[in-house]
Amino acid sequence: MNKLTPEQQRDFEAAAFRALRDHLRARTDVQNIDLMNLAGFCRNCLSNWYRDAAEADGVTLSKEDAREIVYGMPYEEWRAKHQTEASAGQKAAFKKSHPRHD
């Protein structure tokens, strides 16, 4: 494997993040609970990680601003347009795989 420079690694990781963000923005049919049940993270997790990275660099970023970066719109707007009620099966799977989440 070719050795990447730190700048290349940073740039490629940023490009991969943008591709994931854009993919999740396009796949509004995939609910956050589906992501949590299958992958153990969701759009909100991604926005929290983004916010954590900003804060680690000394940049204050609100939860709402971080979510808007990930969702491409205010979170409440995304919820109103795209979020559906979780089924009993989805809720049961979530409770089983994430017992500490309420």
Rank of each mutant, 00 (worst) to 15 (best):
C45F: 10
H23G: 15
E7I: 08
A56L: 15
Y50M: 13
G40E: 03
R25P: 01
R21M: 12
Q8H: 08
A19T: 09
H23N: 10
I33Y: 01
F41P: 03
N44P: 00
E13A: 14
R21N: 09
A14D: 02
T28D: 10
A56Q: 15
T5R: 08
D11R: 11
L24Y: 11
A39R: 02
W49T: 14
A39V: 00
A16L: 15
T5G: 13
Q9R: 14
N44R: 10
R21Y: 06
S47H: 06
N44D: 05
L20R: 10
D52R: 12
D29I: 09
A15P: 00
D22T: 01
Q31L: 05
F12N: 02
A14T: 04
R51Y: 12
L35M: 13
T28L: 04
R51H: 08
L38V: 00
I33C: 03
T28V: 12
F12V: 00
A56E: 14
N37G: 08
P6F: 02
E55I: 13
M36Y: 06
R18W: 09
N37V: 03
R25T: 03
D11H: 12
W49I: 15
R43A: 03
L20W: 05
H23V: 10
A53C: 06
V30E: 04
A14K: 02
R18S: 07
F41R: 02
R27S: 07
R27K: 05
R10Y: 06
A15C: 01
L20A: 10
A16V: 06
N32E: 00
D52M: 13
L35D: 10
C45K: 07
N48C: 11
T5W: 10
H23S: 13
L46K: 01
G40R: 00
F41Y: 07
R18M: 11
V30M: 07
C45N: 05
R21A: 10
I33G: 02
F17P: 03
A15R: 05
Q9C: 06
A19F: 03
S47F: 05
V30L: 11
N32I: 04
L38W: 01
C45I: 14
A54I: 11
T5P: 15
A15Q: 13
R51E: 07
L38Y: 01
A15G: 05
T28Q: 15
L24G: 02
T5H: 04
D22L: 06
R25W: 09
N48R: 09
D34L: 12
E55M: 14
E55N: 08
S47M: 09
A39Q: 01
